[in-house]
């Protein structure tokens, strides 16, 4: 199975040198050009173009800097394995076996500290073979959202379930690695099991979503013949099929 890139456009920050404050200030400029586009959006750092010594890189400062700028740091990739411990200590999830994507990014013209919104294609096999100590596999506590998720906003619960107490708007996207519970009207896109967890489920009080997805299997609600539109519903995965049931 593949987590399809079209469903979660992750920004990838290509790191070229070790000057974190420089990276952050360039990124801030970028963000201010299109704040609505980047706000609260997940971001991955990529070390394939790093010229300095990765062991001297201040990963904690970068993580904090990204959070301060309103990004959600999701993971890192293509850094030398020697830096893995350093990255884990500063709370970075390490995305494995990214040769395919790194070769793609190398073939593109390299621009300094550019934020790209490139689809991250990650196969489930890679995640499953990761040892249990990998931070990716550890479910954190769950995330609660109590403000409306508006059109253009993206909220991501990394390694956790998500509970939404407010409505989500058409044109919004909520994503969790675990299950998602929505008590307001669900009108946007909803993606549970975003990193391949097939037992993740979606529970909602009023199913008006544009798109529903679990572990990469997705469906446009308008193409579904469910009678539960606008009603309380639960969505789960049965083999390859999304099943919508009354709550």
């Amino acid at each position: 199975m593949q987590l399809k890139g079209e469903m979660s456009m992750l920004n990838v920050l290509h790191i070229q040198d070790t000057d974190v404050s420089e990276i952050c200030s360039k990124l801030e400029q970028k963000r201010d050009e299109a704040p609505q586009f980047f706000m609260q959006s997940p971001i991955v750092i990529d070390g394939s173009e790093l010229s300095g010594n990765a062991l001297e890189f201040d990963f904690s400062a970068l993580k904090q800097g990204l959070l301060d700028l309103g990004f959600i740091p999701v993971g890192s990739r293509n850094f030398p394995p020697a830096a893995n411990n350093l990255m884990r200590e500063s709370g970075w999830a390490i995305m494995r076996d990214q040769q395919s994507t790194s070769s793609v990014s190398k073939s593109e013209p390299v621009q300094k500290n550019q934020v790209k919104d490139s689809p991250v294609e990650e196969s489930k096999e890679n995640i499953n073979t990761a040892p249990q100590t990998n931070p990716v596999a550890v479910m954190k506590t769950q995330m609660t959202v109590d403000r409306p998720v508006r059109s253009g906003q993206q909220v991501y619960a990394e390694n956790s379930d998500m509970t939404v107490l407010s409505p989500t708007s058409a044109g919004s996207e909520i994503m969790a690695d675990g299950s998602i519970h929505i008590y307001g009207a669900l009108r946007g896109r909803v993606l549970a099991g975003a990193r391949g967890n097939e037992s993740a489920r979606i529970y909602c009080q009023s199913l008006q979503a544009e798109l529903i997805a679990i572990a990469g299997r997705y469906q446009l609600l308008d193409e579904s013949d469910t009678t539960l539109k606008g009603k309380p519903a639960m969505i789960r995965l049965d083999g390859e099929k999304l099943v919508i049931e009354a709550l």
Binding site: P35, Q36, M39, Q40, G70, R147, P148, V149, R150, S151, G152, Q153, S169, A170, G171, S172
Partner: peptide, 23 residues
């Protein structure tokens, strides 16, 4: 209405008050 919804999202995440944790 859709555009208003969008601007509300920006307001509550990118304004100074929002950056400082307020509404």
């Amino acid at each position: 209405v859709r555009d208003s919804d969008r601007i509300l999202g920006i307001l509550q995440s990118r304004s100074k008050v929002a950056e400082e944790g307020g509404t």
